[in-house]
Design a protein around this nucleic acid. Structure first.
Lengths: 398, 398
DNA sequence: CACATTAGTTCATGACTCGGACTATATGAT
DNA sequence: ATCATATAGTCCGAGTCATGAACTAATGTG
């Protein structure tokens, strides 16, 4: 039922099959050419040709022949750890971060600079981010890793490489992709932090459901605001104007107080960090965690209350989107021991018969977004190796 | 970023290009071969070959040459109205319906049998439906329309051709697709009524947004229950277990009463037909409409109250899914004059800054689902003409 | 040591699309 | 009328790419 917009040509056929083979190698390495042929439906000869292209592009490598039960031993194929790497960056309210990830998904560099960026001059923060990016790029170069591009996680709405609006950072119309691109010489993409955190959790979080990786889930990131990332079929769901997934502004109290967004009774207004800290009568999230560990009743009540509100929002998410799992990330991951029971109870109180999705806790915490940003760069190459080959060829001849 | 699972082969290339060409003809007919070539990116010679296949399959027809500004006049191509047709069926709480649609989307037969099917023996209702289907098939045959298949709209959850659960009809585990397939000799699909209504509204409702047809919207169908159909990028969004879009069970009153689904404070519990009628103190929807027209305050208050609850649910839908439009269908379309102002106000009260989607009223009313069902059959052929050619060829030789 | 078994390569074949040359049919200027 | 120009559509040779069968390679088994 998909609307096709591009003609299928020979080059496209090859591109598609290159992606098919590389995807199979990425999913199940090590594999032999014969296994790839069997699983993809391509013939052995086709796979051989495709693989040799991918090897000479440096995306795949052969390792020592592994003995099979009988017959000629298979030469194992796997992603080349030195083939290419992606640079992930993140601007957030109280830190800047950078991560370099290689083709296999392994982090090869990671650095976080903590500093409150609220109220600072935008150009200064951008300059700091470029410096962080340059340092990361130098590290990649010293490891012999060619960077394929960069992706910046931003706590707000982004359109066409520009930051449109970041409620908690106060930025408006910042051409961040261009700035970082000029500063680093890389192709730079921008994406919402909550969406990238969801992808990071999917690729690197180590979650499994019935032995398969997560593909349809919702990630809740509780930073200063409350964000949501919806992943359907392994891809971020963005909606018509890239505004989808704003879990923080789902209505959980129809007669509730006005929220910063202009609405009323939003989840973020009722269960955001500000509200929790005020109810628990503590100053910082670290204090809150300590108070919960100490069994302080006000703190526990505040967290449980937030958990109940979160459950109401998630109940609506579940009835509307039907995900297989919910992943609690950011601050909610830290608070999970005192929050998730209330959330689970509230979900089941508000959803009834539907079999509830699994409630998982993030394994990456606040690294999820940068990791996801670096991952998107690398995944783009895996999803379309032909484009990468073309770029390589252009560089060689031009 | 799509995960490719099938090898691209020559046959697949042709299949893809056949779909590309047919899709272009369907979207903008009449068109010339040259125009199709220009818009799709295929060469004129390729388009000629593809078109001649589609013509000999009876899917496309040539009409009289239309003079262009200069040069040889173009031969116009358009979908063949007699090429193929789809049978749409619907089982609902208080009626059965059938529609036959030709390739161009024109309805060629339409029939509704009103009767309350609650509490009736399932086999009897199925037998009635098969009779309705047979009558429709005879009408198609007498018009020279070969039916490509059928699709049944069901007010509940369907999985793999079986009705799993229909809360308001009381069915459980009914192999409806097989039964209707045997009764009619057609390939039969099953699909949720709310989803089909959304598709029907998209294809045949005549809605436009900035001159383009709707592609990202939510359709609200207020029948006995409240259903929702989410369409993203022109396709129904089903979620992980085909349970997505259950708008009727979004939480609009966290401390509200228990709903039939087992949850609490669901939209359907707070603003369903039962609740509205009770508050308005009238017996039927027809009475309610009359009361509203007469200016009865209790009726107007009941409808406005439902509108406010609907607005709360839609506010969450908007923040989560970011659609371009909301279409009010079924009973909500009838009640729109007294409901939509309250709904719009409630939406803006609960969403704040986000630019709100357009609030549209259904043009098809309760025909939307059958029309959509017939449309899916025809659209499947348009989306994959190669499969249809293969079936034709198999019938000719076998 | 023959034989079965599996991995991977080679090469002729065939199914496509491409692109340019060609034919067909119109308008407008001379 | 006639010729230049423009556009639509067909034809056919060339190029690309997957296929499939035959081949070579490398192992274990009786």
């Amino acid at each position: 039922m998909t609307v096709r917009t591009e003609p299928a040509q020979h080059a496209g056929m090859r591109a598609s099959n290159l992606a098919l083979v590389l995807g199979e190698v990425a999913r199940t390495s090590p594999v032999s050419r014969a296994q790839v042929a069997a699983r993809t439906g391509l013939t052995k000869s086709s796979v051989s040709g495709l693989v040799s292209d991918l090897i000479s592009a440096g995306l795949i490598q052969e390792s020592a022949p592994a003995a099979t039960e009988r017959g000629r031993p298979a030469t194992a194929l796997s992603l080349a750890p030195g083939g290419i790497a992606g640079l992930g960056l993140e601007v957030n309210v109280d830190y800047l971060a950078a991560t370099v990830t290689d083709l296999t998904g392994k982090p090869r560099y990671h650095h976080v600079v903590r500093r409150d960026n609220r109220g600072r001059d935008v150009d200064e923060v951008v300059a700091d981010l470029i410096e962080v990016a340059r340092t990361a790029a130098r590290s990649a170069a010293s490891q012999g890793l060619p960077l394929s591009g960069a992706c910046v996680a931003v706590p707000g709405l982004t359109v066409d490489g520009a930051v449109v609006r970041t409620p908690n950072l106060g930025w408006d119309r910042v051409d961040l992709a261009d700035a970082v691109g000029e500063g680093t010489g890389l192709e730079v993409d921008l994406e919402n932090e909550a969406n990238l955190a969801a992808l990071g959790e999917m690729w690197f979080g180590g979650h499994e459901l019935d032995g398969a990786p997560l593909r349809d889930f919702v990630h809740v990131s509780g930073e200063i605001g409350i964000g949501g990332g919806i992943v359907i079929g392994g891809e971020v769901f963005r909606g018509a104007h890239a505004g989808a997934g704003e879990l923080g502004h789902v209505v959980v109290a129809p007669d509730g107080p006005r929220c910063g967004c202009g609405g009323h009774g939003c989840l973020e207004r009722m269960a955001g960090q500000q509200e929790i800290l005020a109810r628990a009568q503590v100053a910082t999230m670290a204090d809150l965690t300590r108070a919960c560990e100490a069994g302080d009743q006000a703190a526990l009540d505040a967290v449980a209350g937030a958990g109940r509100h979160l459950g109401v929002a998630l109940a609506s998410v579940i009835t509307l989107l039907d995900p297989t799992a919910i992943v609690l990330g950011g601050a909610f991951a830290t608070l999970a021991p005192w929050l998730s029971a209330a959330t689970a109870a509230s979900i089941s109180h508000h959803t009834g018969a539907v079999e509830p999705p699994r409630l998982l806790v993030s394994g990456l915490g606040s690294d999820a977004a940068v990791r996801g940003a670096a991952g998107t760069v690398v995944r783009r190459v895996i999803a379309d190796p032909a484009a990468h080959l073309a770029r390589q060829a252009a560089r060689a001849t031009g």
